[in-house]
Design a protein around this nucleic acid. Sequence first.
RNA 1: GCGCCGCUAGCUCAACUGGCAGAGCAACUGACUCUUAAUCAGUAGGUUGAAGGUUCGAUUCCUUCGCGGCGCACCA
Length: 527
Amino acid sequence: MSLDELMRQRRAKLAQWRALGVEPYAYRFEPTHRAADLLARGDAVTTEPGEQVRLAGRVMTLRAHGKAGFAHLLDGSGRIQLYFRADHLGDGFRRYELLDVGDWIGVAGPLFRTRTGEITVRVDGLELLAKAVRPLPDDWHGLRDPETRFRQRYADLFMNLEVRDVFRRRARLVSTCRSFLDGRGYLEVETPVLQPLYGGAFARPFVTRHHALDMELFLRISNELYLKRLIVGGLERVYEFSRDFRNEGIDRTHSPEFTMLEFYQAFADVHDMMEVTESLLSEAVERVTGGTTVSYQGQPLEFARPWPRVSMLDEVSQRVSERVDDLDPERLRRLAERHGTESRPGEGPGALLDGLFSALVQPSLVRPCFVVDYPIEISPLARSSRTRPAVVERFEVIVAGVELANAFSEQNDPDAQRRAFEHQMARRASGDEEAQVMDHDYLRALEYGMPPAGGVGIGIDRLTMLVTDARSIRDVVLFPQLRPEEGRAEMDGALAEGGEGAGASPPGPATGEPRARAAPRPEPGAR
RNA sequence: GCGCCGCUAGCUCAACUGGCAGAGCAACUGACUCUUAAUCAGUAGGUUGAAGGUUCGAUUCCUUCGCGGCGCACCA
């Protein structure tokens, strides 16, 4: 049966409700219980009709048996069976007969257990809360098509209940992080999403325009430089859940908009931040999953502390069977060539080392670990190491081969920071679109003096992936970005009857950036 | 950007080597007052993603395009 016909039938029922004097889109209903709570009563529920309950939810199945019938009601907590019979509902049984799968209803009646043992609500009172005029996927096969699941997340959420759990876990993760940081005296702040200069990470930005100010603005690729300004201001511990935007390619672990938790602590260095990160992540994982071991894509990940420390210099040296500590450009170029990891002619030795590490070592880092000894060249906002001059005080957390967090002892020497910016500007001048831009105001802030500080960025999407066993970052983002559907598909069925204005879909995105060549983007943790 | 795969009824999927587009669920009509993938009898439902081509004939083969998935590449 065509969609048009199915929707016509449902709209005909809508009219019948109105003919019965019922407004099919109610204003209010007051449930007293939720499905899961009733099911949890277990053996306390007997075949004798017991406590009166009121529930509200969506009809997910219907099984009519003449003058009786069953349904399953889905509410925010789960699914419970409903039993309707003509001798209890009286005229109301006509309402039952008008129900479609998908309708929102409110019911009232006693709780009991059927002969076959299922905890059930006998419906003595039935109210229609909202008529579904569009048919649902069938209950048995469900909604599988990934494209439809992403485009119509609303349908995904009521057809695939495990999806609800993913986002509940995500929320719990966020609230756990928040209370952890609150508990340690951090202040939650909000900094600009629209920035006149973008910085704090290596990435291409989205560009937009402010009409009243007549100026170009960038959607932030990071909030790092703003948070450190707050450290200068004396807010000694700050954090922000920052939605960042990077105008780059999309893959299993990259989304053009993603959430990063960044936090900064005055008087601390990278070692302090390692401790905070280890505590935060292991606690968050435990609170969300109930244990310290996470099963991710078939492999166990042990989050219990302490995590191993891994030196980038040592690991790469071992993998290529020669020491690379001196970051000798000739040596690294030769090694990169040999291992096929040289990507750009202009790359400096630090980038070459990082390339070797990413290709040869990182994929094998499964359990959570700290990678240290990053070259200064790829860390312009970090302080150089007190013990190894070629590297900076920085770590990344790698889990299951993916970067989860990034942290350093923050550069607070304004002159050193200026030199690092200048070096970046030089790279930019030579064609590196992702090199960072000079931020004079940030330097001015540093000139007032920034206390020593440590800072960390944690990819919340990726962390969610780990605790929900999600293969793709799209599985942990409610509305992942997709190319628009054909306009026609949007309005199919919508004109079945009274579908006014359904075709007036908004024009395409106004943001300038053409899609262009999907440019790459650094790891979100790369601040 | 490249490669592979997919797109068929509302949903989930078939359709052999090119030969009348099918099934289950959902829907509709009827029967049925404890069913649960309810059952029984019947009915209806398709621009096979789009356009073009080859062919007597295309869901099937070819080309282009759209959307999606996976992989690779890119990836300070």
